[in-house]
Computed example of a mutant assay.
Amino acid sequence: METTNMEETDQGIDEFLPEETGQFLRHIPEEVISKVLSGLPIKSLCRFKCVCKSWKSLISDPKFSLITSRGRERAIFWDERTPSFYSLDRDLVLEKLPSPLEKIPDCANQECLFLGSCDGLLLFRVSDTVLLWNPSTRCCRRLFNLNLMAKDYVVEASGLCFDESIREYVVILALFGGRRGDRRIVLSASLSTKIHKRICFPYEICYLANSGISVNGNLHWIIQERKGDPQLIIYFDAKASRFSKLPMPKYNVGDSTHIFGLGVLDGCLSMSRFGNIWNQEHANEILIMREYGVEESWTTLCCLPFKVVGGLGWLGWLPPLFYTKKNKEVLVTNGVHVSVFDLRDKSLRDIHLPKLPNFYQCHMYLESLQKVHPLNPDESMGKEKEKLVICKD
């Protein structure tokens, strides 16, 4: 099990602090320290874990990590030409990230595919290898080999979520294929125990979206049960270990039921769909579910005009990645352009990112201190153990 970790060392240095400094720190209320630290950059927090044991304990607390992730949305881009990862913040500043693939054998210079994200952790695959990465702490870990785990199957959909019942992150994989080529199975894989279990998938479908969106502790995908039917949103409740349908927004006459994608905007589930076919100004509608699970809370955030791209025709916009620092603007992409839409004057302007190609993969993640724990030696799963969970017809 290979792990790369670029976090600062977390060894306490209390004994190296001057006595008067230590006395001063011990008399500051923890809530004051927490408020001050929560406004600092993630890189600084990684270093400040070394100040003293109490700061290390505070910064390492998962609750503190969730507090510091608010307002730290970023977009990550994968440039397959270089290959390189780039991160764009809410100030629209582009930064090249150290690639985790260079440290992991057989992964360097391979194509990357994002599979999902949760609490600042990114799940992606390189060839048949699935990896977990925190871009903020530069920590990455190889999870498992898909070819060994599910031979003769391809990944149809995937996602990463936190299971409150076991206090653990789990990977959800929807696999299609098998020796007959027509079988669909869904697996849940715990990151700590490496136990894979089958989950009942109660739908007969002809379409299932690829990367699951984590909101309110659940994973969400787009499905279509039969050709010509409206597209729907389903979610996986990790605690109950079951799939259900999410209430959809009401449709008006002329509204299309085609969904371009799902996303998260300011903690709410968002959706981009083909708008009203009779109104070109509402060709691409962005909706937000203000109150999770409540049908009436679906609200139209904005409507975007389609863009014509040479050789590709009209391209629809994906859900906004995040609000910019101005708060009245959202960052959007259609797979070719990266643009900012102003919610006040309804204007759309392209962002020039010369380091990125015309075509790229893009995903939203949060800056966070969530750890990517390596497995203990007695829990590690080599090829021999992985073969035990190969799915057979």
Rank of each mutant, 00 (worst) to 15 (best):
S270M: 06
K49E: 05
E80P: 12
N210S: 15
P98M: 04
D342H: 07
I205R: 00
T193P: 00
Q361F: 02
S244N: 06
D229K: 10
Y153F: 11
E80G: 11
T137A: 11
N327H: 14
S57G: 08
V338I: 12
Y251I: 10
Y365L: 09
I205Y: 00
E19H: 08
E8L: 09
R74C: 02
P357G: 03
E386I: 12
I351E: 07
S117A: 11
V294Y: 07
C107V: 00
G382K: 13
V372N: 01
N252Q: 14
L356Q: 04
I213C: 06
S65P: 12
I67Q: 06
K197C: 08
S297T: 02
L25R: 04
I76W: 03
R141I: 08
S347I: 08
N109M: 12
D10E: 10
K151Y: 14
K227E: 08
V130R: 08
N276K: 06
L353S: 00
I76D: 02
R184Y: 05
T3F: 13
V294I: 11
S211H: 04
E384G: 12
T68W: 05
L122D: 04
N376P: 07
L148Q: 13
S38H: 02
L40M: 10
E73C: 07
R183M: 11
L148M: 07
N334L: 06
N134Y: 14
D345R: 04
N218A: 12
I222Y: 05
A240S: 08
P377V: 12
D10F: 10
M364R: 15
C302L: 00
L115F: 04
G178Q: 10
K250G: 13
N358M: 13
D128K: 11
L58P: 03
H27D: 15
H258T: 04
H363P: 10
K35S: 12
R273Q: 15
L173P: 00
M1L: 15
S136V: 05
E225S: 00
K383C: 14
G12R: 09
G310Q: 15
M248N: 03
T4S: 15
R198A: 14
T9A: 15
W317R: 01
I205Q: 00
E7D: 14
Y323K: 13
M289S: 08
C161P: 00
L331G: 02
E329D: 09
L131G: 08
I42M: 10
G313R: 12
F162Q: 09
H258L: 05
K355W: 12
T300N: 13
M149P: 00
S165A: 01
F16W: 13
Q23Y: 08
C362E: 07
I33Y: 04
G177M: 09
Y235H: 11
W221G: 05
N147M: 10
K307N: 08
L58G: 03
L262F: 02
F114L: 07
L269W: 01
L123Q: 02
H258K: 15
V372K: 03
G228D: 05
E7I: 12
N216F: 09
R344L: 13
N218T: 13
D119R: 10
K371V: 09
G313M: 13
L160P: 03
D255I: 02
